[in-house]
């Protein structure tokens, strides 16, 4: 299967690889997926007092599309408010990276990672987690 240029670009030059201090109350961490399934994403956000994401980092165990999806997600998250970040839809990632149907689960995982990171941040700061009732495409 051929990968799109954008997937190859993110895979070859992944943006924002790294680790944020997960004990900080400003940092939210989302760890999704499972090793048995061949995909694990860890996505972290750092949020300022105005609820704006100032930094985002990821590490991913998975195929090229999974790595590209999480790399793209960190790029999109930086500078966004928490509210806008919650609106990122997996199909936006599918479209941007031109993922084929068998790789849609990679984008789903990236969306899950974003929501998990945001909820981790909310819980740390005394807020209730946001339940997502969205049915994935």
């Amino acid at each position: 299967m051929a990968y799109s240029d954008k997937v190859i670009d993110h895979y070859t030059n992944p943006r924002n690889v790294g680790t944020l201090d997960k004990s900080s109350h400003k940092v939210g961490t989302g760890l999704v997926g499972a090793p048995e399934c061949g995909d694990v994403m860890r996505l972290q956000i750092e949020v300022d007092d105005n609820n704006v994401i100032t930094d985002a980092k990821f590490k991913t165990f998975g195929c090229g599309s999974a790595i590209a999806s999480s790399s793209l997600a960190t790029e999109w998250l930086k500078g966004k408010s928490i509210d806008d970040a919650m609106k990122i839809d997996n199909m936006d990632i599918v479209e941007e990276l031109a993922l084929p149907p068998v790789k849609i689960h990679c984008s789903v995982l990236a969306e899950d990672a974003i929501k998990a990171a945001i909820n981790d941040f909310r819980v740390k700061n005394g807020l209730a987690p946001i339940e997502s009732e969205k049915v994935h495409h």
Binding site: Y3, G38, F61, C63, G64, A66, I67
Partner: peptide
């Protein structure tokens, strides 16, 4: 261990 085969093949 700790790297995924398909991602590895892409590299």
């Amino acid at each position: 261990k700790y790297v995924e085969g398909e991602g590895l093949m892409m590299a």
